[in-house]
Every structure is written in C-alpha cells, then in structure tokens.
Nucleic acid binder design. Structure first.
Lengths: 219, 219
DNA sequence: TGAGCGTATCAACACCCTGTTGATCAGGCC
DNA sequence: GGCCTGATCAACAGGGTGTTGATACGCTCA
C-alpha cells in the first residue's frame, strides 16, 4: 500500500473534502433544495465558479457522498452474514438491523438523495444498486430457508425479497422524514421484522388461484 | 342542488380548468420540475402573471389535482367495502385492487406529487390523508379478522396496516417510476396480495422475544 | 349615462439560482 | 526566464419565480 499521488496538491484535495463536509453539515439543518451551490462554496471557503472546478453540480456532490455509503453498505452486508452462526432468527434480525442502520446512520444524506432522485438518473442507479444488494441477500436467505424446508414456497423468493426491502425502505424513510401515518412510538424494526417473519415462513391461503374462498383459520 | 354562482364569469372558471387540464396533459410527457409556470400559462392561453391570478404557485395546481383524487379515493373505499359480501378473500383482493387502482389510474399526478412532497407540507399532509384512509380500512379488516379468530394476533393491527400500505405504496411507485429492483413481468398486485395474506393470517415465530431461536418448520 | 367597483389581464421589474467565459495568479520544471 | 498546469474568481448569460402598476372590460346603481 504505497501512496499513489506523488504531487500532492497544496489545497485541492482538501477543498474537495471541505465541500463534502460542508454539504453534510448543511444537510443536517436544511433541505438539499435549500442548499445552494454558493452555500457549499462559501462553506468550503471558495467562490462559486471554483466549486465547479471540483464538482460539476450539486448532484455530483451527493453522488460522491452516496458512493461512500454504497461501499459501506457492501462491506457490512458481508460482515453481517459471516458474523451470526447457526441461529437463523438472530441472522435475520442482524441482517435487518444492518439494513436499517445503513439508512438511519445517514439520515440527512438519505433524505437528500430521495429528494434528488427524480432529477438524477445517476442517483437513481446508485440507489437501486444499494437496494439490489440488500435484495440479493434477503433473496438468498429466503431461498435457503425454502430449500431446507423451513420456509414454504408459494411466493418467488426474488419477488418476496424485493417487496420486503421496499416495505423496509419506505417505512424507514417515513420515520426519517417524520411522515404520517406513523408506527407511533414502537420501534419500526420490530414491526418490520415481524412481517418479514410471517411473509417468509408462513403459508398463504389468500393466494392467486381464483375459487379459493373461505380463509381457513390458522391458529 | 341549485347552481350557486349567479354571476358566472365569462372565462375565469374555464381558465382555471384550462390550467388544470394543461398541467395534466404536460405531466404525461414531462416531469413536474420540467413544467414551468409559463408552460402552464401558455397552455391555458394566458400570460404568466395571469396564472397567479388563479393559482398561487405550481404547488397549488398539483394540490387541486390531488384533491380530486383524494375525494375519489374516499368514495371508492366505501364502495369496495359495501360491494363484496361474505367472501373475505375476495374482499381483500377487491380492496387492494382499489388502492392500487387509485395510484395507477393517476400515474402522472402521483409521480408529480411524490416529486413535490419534499417541498410542500400541504402536499405531504394531503397525501398522508389519502394513505391514512387506506390504512384505516386495512386496519379495520385485520382487526375484524383477528377478533373472529381467523387471523392470529401478535402484531398490532394498526402497525401491520401501516406497514402493508407502505409496502404497497412503495412497490406501486417503483413500478410507476420504472425503478429497479423490479418485480419483473409479474403483476405486482399478486405479489403484494400474497404478502398481505401471510402477514395478516399466518403466525410469527421470529418474533421479538429474545431466546426464541430455532425456526420451526411450518409446512 | 356615466361614475364606480370588482374581475381579469399583462408588460416590466426585481430577485435568485445555475452554469460558463476569460482573465489572472502561483508554482514546479526545463 | 519562459511555460505549462492547477487553481481561482469577477462578470456574464440564461432561465425560473413571484410582484407591481397600469389597463381594460363589464356590471350596477344613482
């Protein structure tokens, strides 16, 4: 691991970091829409045109920030899987905690990203990459449980995983944004986990086949 | 039902309609961000300042459009409940279809709303009102099934309802926006319904109590 | 009938934000 | 010492929002 850049610029690299730091800081108190490029520039001690020397747009700043999170998410995903042993229940819980933590641990950024997504194909793509990672893990877990007979089939593992991650994402986002309707004071994680459990392990009797009518009482 | 306004303006009322119609039309092909107030004005055959005579902002236009949907949603909710008889499975399916239809039937508007929500407290409020209506219905259904013993307890009906609506909302939105990861070619409604079924009727064994470890195989 | 009042309309303005241009400056290097 | 490259910014161009002040239309009431 030798250092790559021999000619370290006196300030250039620091300026970039300063911009990113300013962005993170300002996002703690304001919406991304309310943070102008001038704000970012001033915060980093430079003028607006100089900002453009480092980033091509506000979007690029957020993208860089999100890149970090994406990398972090990839790493913890692997770690969570390796960590827990045979305890399947603990493994699900740990996995869900990891996912939730990824969002909650970057509240300001996540909200900014969700606000800019409609305007940025690149952001959408990177975000969906992060989600896809989570979906892959959950899908794998479901498939594994289905194959060893612990979980019933009937729903495609992939579809189930996509839906469960969608639910989790939306619910966490609601909480982060303070939206209604709420789960109240309850830890969203517990609610989500309970539904994951039922969705993955229980059998369905409301299924797609027409004619299936009376719902059997399942104790 | 007598007409209220005796002095019907020669054009004023029509202008307002024209603006709303223009908005709906333009949203079919562009993002709300890409529709300027000037576009709306020109589309309605007026100048930009005149637009402000009818609406105070772009947000107000979307709000008016969403108001209609909110009313419509309230009406079909009642209808769906009254319609189906004893067939509980059909009732759930019908209810879910109603909800999904509300979103899908107004694709352009829904996408516009979701884009403006971060910037508009009023939009957030109205949107959450619509959602709350759906949540109430689902909660009622769950509670009813739990009380007659068809559905197990273990998850609070309200929380379950909130989470299921969140999942549905997010998933439908993904499809409307063409986001990844996708459910593929499958009808999202079937996937969602299957998960509703499991979440509402099956029992959980991954639950919150620590110590619960080995997942029992459920047939 | 014509003064008066609300409705409706818009040119022109003030403002803010983004992104670009072109000039400038500082330092390493040949 | 000349020159390229990195870095910087005043000034500009362009596009969007929301406001102001003047104006025109039509109805009503004296």
């Amino acid at each position: 691991m030798e250092r790559r850049r021999r000619s370290r610029r006196p300030s250039g690299d620091d300026r970039e970091k300063a911009i990113l730091a300013t962005a993170e800081q300002l996002l703690e108190t304001r919406t991304i829409r309310d943070v102008s490029i001038d704000d970012l520039a001033r915060g980093a001690g430079i003028s607006r045109p100089t900002f453009y020397f480092y980033f091509s747009s506000k979007e690029a700043v957020i993208l860089t920030l999100l890149d970090r999170v994406a990398e972090e998410a990839g790493q913890v995903r692997g770690a969570a899987l390796a960590e827990a042993g045979d305890d399947v229940a603990a493994l699900w819980r740990r996995g869900l905690e990891t996912i939730v933590e990824t969002f909650v641990g970057h509240r300001a950024l996540v909200l900014a990203v969700s606000q800019m997504m409609p305007d940025s194909a690149e952001l959408r793509q990177l975000w969906s990459l992060i989600l896809a990672g989570f979906v892959d893990d959950v899908e794998l877990g479901i498939r594994s449980e289905q194959q060893r007979g612990a979980a019933p089939g009937g729903i495609d593992a992939r579809h189930l995983a996509v839906a469960l991650i969608a639910m989790t994402e939306r619910l966490v986002h609601s909480v982060l944004a303070g939206e209604e309707p709420t789960l109240g004071t309850v830890d969203p994680l517990e609610v989500v986990l309970a539904i994951w459990s039922r969705a993955i392990y229980a059998d369905d009797h409301l299924g797609g086949r027409p004619g299936a009518t009376g719902p059997p009482a399942s104790g």
